[in-house]
């Protein structure tokens, strides 16, 4: 079981770009702790920035994995840059656009744009951040260490997201 932080893939240009969305929902338990009411302060549910990074990592990771037909085990190796300028609150939609900057046998570098869609004005899309990442194809790295044969990175939950988004793989 893997914790998925994207709801749907909305666009895929193989080896180039993948766009995914995440609907922020008050039904998610963690929003009640992040941040809970405390003392005189009222509760302030906002999507944790760490999970926005994870959402982008999943978006970019699928893009990188898809490029080699999910043969490579693609692991997030480095968070090169993160800028987030606004909070995402319940009812809003996050849109992640990941682009491959460079890829070779060893791994890939991606750049990512984070956008926020307001439910009251879905046509207006605000860019709220940039998340640049690096991925390693671990079978090609880590000093010849061996990993399990089956691809434990892209398990059934990822396949379900792709399938339900109508993506062939």
């Amino acid at each position: 079981m893997r914790w998925l932080w994207i709801d749907r893939v909305v666009e895929l240009v193989p080896r180039e770009r993948l766009v995914a969305i995440k609907n922020v929902s008050l039904a998610e338990d963690h929003l009640h702790d992040h941040f809970a009411a405390q003392g005189g302060r009222v509760a302030m549910p906002v999507m944790p920035a760490t999970l926005i990074i994870e959402g982008m990592a999943q978006t970019a990771g699928i893009l990188v994995g898809h490029a080699e037909e999910f043969r490579e085990k693609v692991i997030l190796a480095k968070i090169s840059k993160v800028v987030l300028t606004r909070e995402a609150v319940p009812g809003f939609t996050l849109r992640y656009t990941a682009t491959i900057e460079r890829m070779d046998a060893m791994g890939a570098a991606t750049s990512g744009r984070v956008e926020l869609i307001d439910p009251n004005d879905p046509a207006s899309v605000e860019t709220i951040g940039q998340i640049d990442l690096m991925f390693s194809h671990i079978d090609q790295n880590l000093a010849g260490r061996e990993f399990p044969e089956h691809n434990f990175v892209f398990g059934e939950s990822f396949r379900t997201v792709l399938r339900s988004s109508g993506i062939e793989f």
């Binding site: 190796a77 480095k78 090169s80 900057e101 460079r102 060893m106 791994g107 570098a109 690096m134 390693s136 790295n141 880590l142």
Partner: peptide, 14 residues
């Protein structure tokens, strides 16, 4: 660290 070497290669190329 090891992944930085790949990052350096990519950025030198650019």
């Amino acid at each position: 660290e090891s992944i930085d070497f790949l990052d350096i290669v990519f950025r030198l190329e650019q």
